[in-house]
């Protein structure tokens, strides 16, 4: 994985501290061309990996990437699935079974119903695989070396003790897409133990890691301890602590943590992208000098 990954929250009005900012972002990125422009700015700053949710609009971005193979030949996407609000709103409206009927592709689910509910159970992993395949459709022909499960699903399964499904996701992603599975979580220490018990060694985990203990369940000290052990390949996200830490200070902290392979950030302007990249590079260079 590259040291710096570019995220997509800013494109889809995801802002953890301000509804006002989130509306401003929705207006700014109303047209797909505005997203492409920022992605190009990121590429110009040397970032070639875009980590994004499987939002409907990403399908349009994928079209642009496919239409310009030369320009995007080194460009990689790390899909993060699912786009949770799509399913959450559907569950409110249609219930759990209704949602599955709507989103599991083809007649699979319908025929299972006709065949009786008894063997839906046995085939639940197949249903999960079909949902993954449906989400992956938009990325056809695009380089997706790591495929992530979004934190709301990772952590839901983690809490429910459905460890088998987490492992099944990893296996499916590997066998069908020749990709590595990644897991986004707000509960890194707990998740890591579960993945290790399931036989996944050195997993890719993307977690909230920041100086102010924001969304680091179990606490910052525990996270720092786990990082020291080097048992997983970590992507640090929410490094600004939801906006609570000045960027320079935030990046200095996270760039100097041991075993953080990549840093994920999102920005809407060329200037912010360049500043962030330069700051991370500066701290990386300082660290090399010290070591």
């Amino acid at each position: 994985m590259e040291r710096i990954l570019f995220g997509d929250n800013q494109f889809f009005a995801v802002n953890h501290i301000s509804d006002e900012k989130s509306r401003a972002q929705a207006i700014k990125f109303k047209d797909d061309s505005a997203i492409i422009k920022v992605l190009d700015d990121a590429m110009a700053a040397g970032i070639n990996t875009f980590m994004c949710t499987t939002h409907d609009r990403i399908a349009n971005i994928c079209d642009v990437i496919r239409d310009n193979p030369k320009k995007y030949k080194d460009f990689k996407i790390y899909p993060c699935m699912p786009y949770a609000h799509k399913y959450a709103n559907a569950v409110t409206e249609l219930g759990i079974v209704g949602t599955l009927k709507q989103y599991v592709p083809g007649n699979f689910f319908g025929s299972l119903f006709k065949g009786g509910v008894a063997y839906i159970n046995k085939d639940f992993i197949s249903i999960m695989e079909l949902l993954v395949d449906a989400e992956m459709k938009m990325f056809k022909g695009i380089n997706t070396p790591v495929i992530f499960l979004q934190n709301v699903i990772t952590d839901l399964l983690l809490g429910l003790g459905m460890n088998e499904l987490l492992i099944a996701f990893a296996k499916h992603v590997e066998s069908k897409y020749n990709a590595e599975a990644g897991f986004i979580t707000m509960n890194l220490p707990k998740l890591l133990s579960v993945l290790e018990e399931g036989g996944i060694k050195n997993p890719i985990i993307c977690a909230s890691i920041n100086k102010v203990n924001f969304r680091m369940s179990g606490g910052k000290e525990l996270y720092e301890e786990v990082l020291k052990q080097g048992r997983c390949r970590v992507i640090a996200m929410q490094v600004l602590g939801g906006g609570a830490i000045p960027p320079k200070e935030a990046l200095e902290y996270v760039a100097n943590l041991p075993n953080v392979e990549s840093i994920l950030f999102g920005a809407s302007s060329k200037q912010n992208i360049q500043n962030t990249v330069e700051t991370i590079k500066y701290h990386d260079n300082q660290r090399v000098l010290v070591e």
């Binding site: 501290i17 952590d155 839901l156 707000m186 102010v212 969304r215 369940s217 602590g241 906006g243 609570a244």
Partner: peptide, 15 residues
């Protein structure tokens, strides 16, 4: 003030 300044960490975070 942001919620991040006013929120206690939890032991397990879901949503």
């Amino acid at each position: 003030k942001y919620v991040t300044d006013l929120t206690e960490e939890v032991n397990f975070y879901l949503r």
